[in-house]
């Protein structure tokens, strides 16, 4: 019986298996690298109807976060300010700026400005701002250096693993309550001082961040 299959077909299965293994490795690494909020969310910086510059208002003028996001200490939701908050100053400053036209229109009509949401956890996550800022977690831990951002950028992945990192080691992030909105605060004692004081806060404030499912998913 003559050769039905040519000779090169002897090594074909092996070559195919090697190629499929390499392909599988490429797909797995691709998914690991890309299919995570570290890729899909971090870096998101939509253009807003009014190009509000945090780096100027917070960094330069020294506005406290709570001047605008005034309910963050009482509410689970950190509110976007009303147009009247902008008008507290802009009824006097830059009153003829074209960029501020939507603010003036909103103030006059009562129709809200349609800001584009940057940070958005899935709906099955019950994140509460007030409980974090009232217990020593600064804005900067999740939102990054907003006081240096001209356009607000998604800075941290806000993934579940990322949340749990902090819930397992709260002492690395806890800080004195009067430094919550001071975004460039770092513990004067460096990393060691942070851990030492962090552990003290955990003890004093009875910090016990939930790690069970129902802590955040209810």
């Amino acid at each position: 019986m003559s050769n039905v299959f040519p000779k090169w077909s002897n090594t074909l299965p092996l070559k195919l298996i090697v190629f499929l293994l390499i392909l599988a490795a490429a797909v797995v690494s691709g998914v690991t690298y890309y299919a995570t909020p570290k890729y899909t969310r971090v870096g998101y910086e939509p253009s807003q109807p009014v190009p509000y510059d945090h780096s100027f208002h917070v960094g330069e003028l020294g506005l406290d976060c709570r001047y605008c996001h005034s309910k963050v200490e009482e509410s689970g939701h950190a509110n976007i300010p009303a147009a009247s908050t902008c008008m507290s100053c802009h009824s006097m400053i830059k009153t003829d700026s074209d960029l501020l036209e939507p603010v003036r229109a909103s103030y006059a009509s009562g129709e809200p400005i349609q800001w584009v949401r940057v940070h958005e956890t899935p709906d099955y996550v019950y994140f509460d701002h007030s409980v974090h800022v009232n217990r020593g977690i600064s804005c900067v831990e999740c939102h990054g250096r907003v006081d240096e951002m001209e356009v607000v950028r998604h800075d941290q992945p806000l993934s579940m693993g990322w949340c749990l990192d902090c819930h397992r080691h709260p002492e690395e992030a806890l800080r004195p309550l009067d430094q919550i909105t001071n975004l460039d605060w770092v513990h004067p004692g460096g990393e060691k001082g942070q851990i030492k004081d962090g552990l003290k806060f955990v003890e004093e404030w009875n910090i016990n961040p939930p790690q069970s499912c129902s802590g955040c998913h209810r």
Partner: peptide
């Protein structure tokens, strides 16, 4: 990762993300 973009984030498995 982390490249700046103005496109809305892609939701890879959007099961019940938006209720």
């Amino acid at each position: 990762r982390g490249a700046k973009s103005t496109r809305p984030p892609l939701e890879v498995f959007p099961d019940m993300d938006r209720m």
